[in-house]
Amino acid sequence: MTSFPVLLPPCASRDAACVINAALLAQWPLPQPAADADKAGRGHILIVAGSPETPGAAVLAATAALRAGAGKLVIATAASVATAIGIAMPEARVIAIPETSRGGITLHAAKSLQQAIGMVDAAVIGPGMPKGVATSHLVALLREAWPVVPLVLDATAMDALPAQPDLGGPLALTPHAGEMAHLTGHAKADIEHDAASHALHYANAWSATLALKGGSTHIASPDGRLWRLDDGDVGLATSGSGDVLAGLVGGLLARGADVEQALAWATWLHGQAGKCQAQRQGPLGYLARELAAEIPRLLQVPAESHAAIPY
């Protein structure tokens, strides 16, 4: 697996939230591959995503992971849509996994993916997958087999948490308030009213770094550190946007970022990509598929002396 030095995060006080902006990220640069690195040296990522109803989620997450700088991509998806996803994503190796009648993965298929995750630097599980016991079982099996591989759990994959609140190893979660309400039993309105407290509590309870998405996104670490991103864009509240964010987090993890850094950078990149699209097309109506193309340029912005973003 790829190994990079990890920088300690700036502004890591437990007394108040650190605001995520270009100035903060300039002090927290992402790991960079060597000039002569091959594609594996840039990071190898596994995306477990998609279903017959929502195959595009796998494409959105996978595209974002590559745009974030990962060099090698494997997609594991339902067999009935694997060929179509492979055509839509020619950069990927695609694993067709047996599926249930509802398009979910089977328990047998979950075991077959244990070998695949042992060869990658990070994995994203959940975008576009249907709810079901097998998805939660997959998370547990992969964590048991490879506890050191950073995992991003998105959408239905987060259902594994209430039953197994400490999955161990580096773990990133990306719930919005509605998903957080489903996972915790709290009212959505209560979570939105005090998002920071809920993020901190459940990051500790689940031993995970958690990005609670909303108008302001709160990122909490298990040891009580908190970051906040205030400049979200309403246009990002659109189908597929969360799949893009999950892929960004996974791609940055594959590059060698730790979980806190990957979530901080990914949420900022995601928000800025929305602003770029809003400026170019209008505040509403741009598509999730259009966000990822903004990312390579935005990755350079924090290092450019905090220059204004060239929309």
Rank of each mutant, 00 (worst) to 15 (best):
I97K: 00
A134M: 01
I75L: 03
A134C: 11
I75H: 03
A123K: 00
M119F: 13
Q115I: 09
K111R: 13
I75M: 12
H108L: 05
I85D: 10
G118L: 01
S136T: 12
H137D: 15
L138V: 12
G132L: 09
T83C: 07
L167H: 05
M129D: 12
A163M: 05
D159K: 06
R143D: 09
M89Q: 13
W146T: 14
I75A: 08
I97P: 03
V149G: 07
S136M: 01
T156N: 14
T106G: 11
L151H: 05
L171M: 06
V94Q: 06
R143F: 02
G132Q: 10
G118C: 12
T83L: 04
A96Q: 01
L107P: 13
A122W: 02
A155M: 09
S112N: 09
V81E: 08
I117G: 14
Q164C: 02
L141N: 09
G86Q: 00
E91N: 04
A157S: 15
P98Q: 02
I105V: 15
R102M: 06
S80E: 08
A78Y: 00
V120K: 05
A122R: 01
G118I: 03
P170A: 12
A88I: 02
I85E: 04
G168K: 07
A79P: 07
G132N: 13
L151K: 04
G118P: 11
L171E: 09
G104M: 06
V74S: 15
M129I: 14
A82P: 11
I97S: 14
V133F: 03
T83H: 10
G86I: 01
P90R: 00
S101F: 00
A84Q: 08
I105S: 11
P165W: 01
I87D: 00
G168I: 04
I117D: 15
V120F: 06
A79Y: 01
L151D: 08
A155V: 08
E99D: 13
G104I: 00
L171V: 09
L151P: 15
W146K: 15
A109F: 04
S101I: 07
P90A: 06
A84G: 09
M129K: 05
L113Y: 12
M158P: 15
L161I: 14
V149A: 02
E144M: 12
R93C: 13
A163L: 01
V149E: 10
M89F: 00
G126V: 11
R143L: 05
V81I: 01
P147E: 10
L113H: 14
A163D: 14
I85V: 10
L161Y: 13
D166S: 08
L73A: 08
A157E: 13
A88Q: 02
V148Q: 11
E99I: 01
R143Y: 08
P130V: 07
Q115P: 15
V152T: 12
V94E: 03
P165T: 05
A92N: 03
G128W: 08
V81Q: 04
A92V: 09
G86T: 05
G104V: 09
R93K: 10
S101C: 03
V120H: 10
S101V: 09
A96M: 03
I87E: 07
A116Y: 04
S136Y: 02
T156D: 15
L167N: 11
L171T: 04
L138S: 10
Q164G: 01
G168A: 04
L153Y: 02
P127C: 07
A76L: 07
A82D: 03
G118Q: 08
A109P: 13
V148W: 00
A145S: 13
V124T: 10
G132I: 06
I97C: 12
V148H: 11
V74H: 08
E99S: 11
